[in-house]
Write a protein that binds this DNA or RNA. Sequence first.
DNA 1: CGTCGAGTTGAGACTTGTCAATACCGGTGG
DNA 2: CCACCGGTATTGACAAGTCTCAACTCGACG
Lengths: 256, 256
Amino acid sequence: MSSARPTGGATSRGIAFSRPADCAQRQRVHGSCAGCEVRDIAACSAIPSRELHELEQLGGKIRLSPGTTLVREGDARTEVHTLVSGMARQVRLLPDGRRHVAGFLLPGDFIGFSAASHHRHSVEAVTESVLCSFSLPSVRRLRERYPDFDANLFEQACGELDKAGSYLTALARMTPVERLSAFLLHLSGRQHALGGRENHVDLPMTRADIGDHLGLTIETVSRTFSRLKQEGVLYFEHPHHIELRDPPRLRELAGL
Amino acid sequence: MSSARPTGGATSRGIAFSRPADCAQRQRVHGSCAGCEVRDIAACSAIPSRELHELEQLGGKIRLSPGTTLVREGDARTEVHTLVSGMARQVRLLPDGRRHVAGFLLPGDFIGFSAASHHRHSVEAVTESVLCSFSLPSVRRLRERYPDFDANLFEQACGELDKAGSYLTALARMTPVERLSAFLLHLSGRQHALGGRENHVDLPMTRADIGDHLGLTIETVSRTFSRLKQEGVLYFEHPHHIELRDPPRLRELAGL
DNA sequence: CGTCGAGTTGAGACTTGTCAATACCGGTGG
DNA sequence: CCACCGGTATTGACAAGTCTCAACTCGACG
């Protein structure tokens, strides 16, 4: 029986991704909920505008610079967060260094759907990011007081479960081309909904992040990108900024 | 660019798994909530005993024989369910026949965490099963009326998200041995909690089901079982009933 | 201009998937 | 009670795709 084979996982080659000191760079910043960038899309949109001052008292905003860690896998859960701007990734590390990026967080995403007492993933900023944080007890009180907020959270949790189901299928049964195509379409759609250019994708994360998300190596990610580029489906303005030149074909490749 | 390669997926060899007629075998049966087998573990445990008559009026029990379908992928969602006894599987089919088994449902499991209007998976009975069903509006009313029920559902949804995260990591970054080991430990633990023998696993599903769940082919599943058997980690009383002979070693193989 | 990290590309190894034959189990019918 | 039959599981040989290892390119930064 072969021992665990550290297949993939960017850190399996000896580079530690999570630098301990990075946690310290959390900075509290001020911000009013009324002018919040994600006021309309986040779960707290259910709270009436005239009562936002209460929210502001309970919550705090945190600014993270790229690569810094918001919460560390294994730490006790004390807060939940909503991403206000930027991009973050949820990361899990296996004992032997293999890495799994559970997902990329975009503005409006809620961080904190878990029944566990400790964090099951680290959360790291991919780009400069701002997050809104609430203590667990605060959230409990808000949920009791604002049923719509509670319902929003439940709805969003269900949406997360739907999304998880799609990723599960992708990882279990799809080829690299399908996985990457679906990933690009998904991200492009979300970024477009948030105000980005249609049929464009920003990929501020590294190829290792993408690979660790899709269950592939960086080389396979790179090769797959190259094939899609060569086919004319993708156009690279930059390795981190891609135009989807043939969305229908891409959807086809993604398995619809 | 190679076209989609139907790797794995039991149905990719031409056998249709979902037989249309199977839906018809749903049978409504009577049952009192007070004597329900999962009274203490299902979400509805939050509803006081003296008010169970209301539940009984809203809900209905359904008996499914092995292989029959409860809901079909793509159908409109009108009900939620709780598995009372037996085992069911959640299945998704890709256009070319590849199959993904999103999960196996055990007594107490809730079926219906989704933000979508249509079912994203089919649900099929693996063994003779009994389920409890409620219409979507009924559930909404129950959630409004019983905050503890609502909280239970939310908690269970969060637990599902935690579980999904583990599967995601397994599919993205783990070897066949690790996937199968973790699967057996997980299922064994759940079955033990439900009254099964410790360190024993019942596997009423086929190897194809297991493979389609773990992102492997039936051959790889079988070979992996054989290796674990040969190592003395597993003992086969039957292809569908396994004893875990060396749980510590199995945990080690599963990556803890 | 040199260095460093990230990304791309190439060649070969290895695991898993594919194809195919055989063994096994349960149910049916003689 | 036993032989037969269909579906399932196991095992083997081979092929294919991805991973591994390594060289090279590119761009940012000092």
